[in-house]
Structure formats: C-alpha cells, structure tokens
Design a protein around this nucleic acid. Structure first.
Lengths: 197, 197
DNA sequence: GTTCGACCGAAAAACCAATTTGGTCGATTA
DNA sequence: TAATCGACCAAATTGGTTTTTCGGTCGAAC
C-alpha cells in the first residue's frame, strides 16, 4: 500500500513538515519565512499561496498535532468498556501523547510568556475539549451507577487541571518508566479516596 | 500591651515595610533604592547597613510573608483533631492566605517571567515545606487508621500540585464566596473518591 | 493553478549619547 | 561600636536616530 506516491505529499504538507522542524528548533519568532521556504524548496512568495501568514502555518501545525492526540485518546477510550477503565485509558493516552508534543513545546516555552494570544486560544479550545471528554465519561459513569459524584462539572474541571499541573513535574522532569505506575496510584486516589473503610 | 514602642519598630522592619508598599505598587525593577530610602526616611547608603542589596530586601519581604502564611496554616491545622479535618483546615487556610499575597504577587506577575531566579528559589523551598506538611498529616492519618494510602509521598505531592494548579482558575479569577464550597466538593472527592458503593 | 522576483512598510536591531541607579567608601556623628 | 550620609563610580537603562530585517503584497510568467 505504498507503491504509489503518498497522497499526503501535498505541497501544503511539505511546507507544514518543513516548518515544524524549524519551529521546533528555533521557536516561532526566530523562524523566518525565508527559512521555511528554503526548507520546503520553494520561493518565499509561494508559501503564501498555501497559507495566509506565518501565524497560520503555526496554527495549522499545532492543530494537526492536537487533532492527532485527540484521535489517539478517543481510540484508547473507545477500546474500554467501563467508565473507570475509560478514565484510566484517557489519562494514560494523554500522558503518552503529551510526550510527543514535547519538541514543539520546549522550543516555545521561552516565547510562551510573550503575548502570542493565538497560542493561548488554541490551548483554551483544547482544554475545553478535554473537560468535555472527561465530563462525558463521568456522566455516563454516574448514569450507570458506577460513579457517585456531587458536581460533575467541577470534578471534571478539577481532574483536568490537576492532570495538567502534574504533567510538568511528573513527566517532563522525571521521564522514566515508573511514571506510569505513579499515575496509576493517583487514579486509585481519585476512584477510591484516601479514607479507610 | 501597646504602651511602649513596639519592639518591631526596628529600622530593618521600617525599611521592609516601606519597601513592601513600593514593590507592591511598582514591582521589583521599577522600584529604586532611593525611593525605598526616602520612604524609610533614610539616606540611600544607610539602607545598605541593614541589607546587602535590593534583591536581599525583596527576598526578606517574600520570606516574611511566606513565614506568616506558614504560621497561619500551622495554627489552623493544630486547632483541628482528626486528620481529615486537618487537611480541610489546611486547604482553607492556604486558600485564604494566598489571597493576601495577591498584592505583592500581582505587581510581580509581569516580571515573573524574567529570570529572577531567586523568586523561583523561594518558591521551591516553600513547595517542599508544603509537601512535608501534608505528608505529615497523611502519615498520621494512616497510622491512626483513618486513612488508607498506597504511596504517601506521591499522594502528598499530587495534592499540593493539584491545589496549586487549581489556585489560579478557581480563586484568582473567580473570587466569590462560592469558591469555598467548591473546594469542599473537591475535598470530598479526595477523601471518598468517585466510585459508587 | 503554481511559482517567483521585485518591492513596500512596519518592526526589530544596532548604535550612540545622556541619564539613572545599584552599590562602595571614607568621613562624621552619637 | 553602631548608624548615617555625601560624594563618587561603574554598569545598566533610557531616549532617540539610523539601518537592517522580515512578513507580506503584486504582477508577471509558466
């Protein structure tokens, strides 16, 4: 199934891939349109036939990555039956997926502070999606009598926030195989609490 | 008990208090040593008799605030009997205490991004203290048979991280009376989990 | 439909003079 | 000895100007 030229070798795709490596290496600001064009073996003006701005290219890259992560997570969730297992699958898939974004992300961490509001926009949009995903699982769990939750909205929001907070110290800094077990421990707290019975 | 001049009216204390209001208003960078000296009704050189640098003054202020918060939290914890109540008291006291730091913090949020590594140092030191506090409570709770926790270290760390992550969206942005109730809901999840039984 | 050279305007970088400012020192006071 | 301060310095910052870079447009060519 690779005998023909891959249909994804579209010019847009070439530009996106070229740009991605340069962005990952130099960050958004330091990357020039000329560099992107050269890497794609095109003239600078040609790029504008496919994307309306540098920001646009960046947005396309980030959204593509985010979509791939979304898809991977959805797949992992659907493979499970109970709500508890779905939550576990979600956390694991998310954790692994975030790792792949590390390259792009680390190049941007210095610029993250600056006022590139469009980055924030993408993040907010994705956060909302995450909360909704979790909310859906929790809701189903409650309806099935599997979970008992006072405030689903708050719990979903808190879970996502906590996960995001744990991302950095647990994963970025401490990137070994034990990390997965650690998340398991946390999930047990989430499911069963810490009160003895 | 206020008939004599308060022993805290030390010159160091005057300098610290003067500096605090100026820092809170203008931030670290924009505040000059001359301004601090004037506010303390001293010559600029005199300041250096008590503090070795501007950074030093700032550090002293932050550490003082942090110590006061620590004390308030410790007091709240000790007033409670069971471990569960101690945790609840801790979270509430912490939440309220952080609010008081808002002034200083908000003036710094723009400079927070810059490489004032000493700020980060204070934060790390304080984080460690927080984790240890929680760890102590959890340990006692387990020993008393009140809690049942797989990995105390991880749970304490996760709880602090999650609290820190929830601080901003739950508290700074949404500063109404309902916030307290929200934390209550979260604590219930922590104690009892979400699994129905 | 695609590619590109030439060009534009705004933003950034580079440069420089003038000023500010964190910090030192020695003398003075008490 | 402890505390205060005026005078001073080197380094950083500021303000303003010039130069360069860079994102983006346009029209021609294929």
């Amino acid at each position: 199934m690779e005998t023909t030229i891959d249909i994804k070798d579209d010019v847009s795709e070439i530009i996106l891939n070229s740009a991605k490596t340069i962005f990952a290496r130099y960050g958004f600001k330091k990357t020039t349109m000329d560099e992107i064009a050269q890497a794609a073996r095109k003239g600078k003006s040609s790029i504008y036939h496919y994307f309306k701005s540098k920001e646009d290219i960046f947005k396309a890259i980030v959204e593509k990555e985010a979509d791939e992560l979304s898809a991977a997570i959805a797949k992992a969730i659907n493979a499970e039956t109970t709500s508890e297992k779905k939550i576990r699958a979600y956390v694991l898939a998310r954790m692994k997926g975030i790792n792949n974004l590390t390259n792009l992300y680390s190049a941007l961490k210095d610029e993250y502070l600056e006022h590139y509001s469009f980055i924030e926009n993408v993040r907010v949009k994705y956060d909302t999606e995450e909360v909704n995903t979790i909310k859906g699982i929790l809701k189903t769990g409650v309806e099935d009598g599997e979970f008992k939750i006072e405030d689903i909205n708050l719990t979903a929001f808190a879970l996502v926030t906590a996960l995001k907070g744990l991302e950095y110290p647990l994963f970025i800094k401490n990137n070994n195989a034990k990390t997965e077990k650690r998340f398991e421990g946390l999930l047990n707290v989430l499911f069963y609490g810490i009160i003895a019975r």
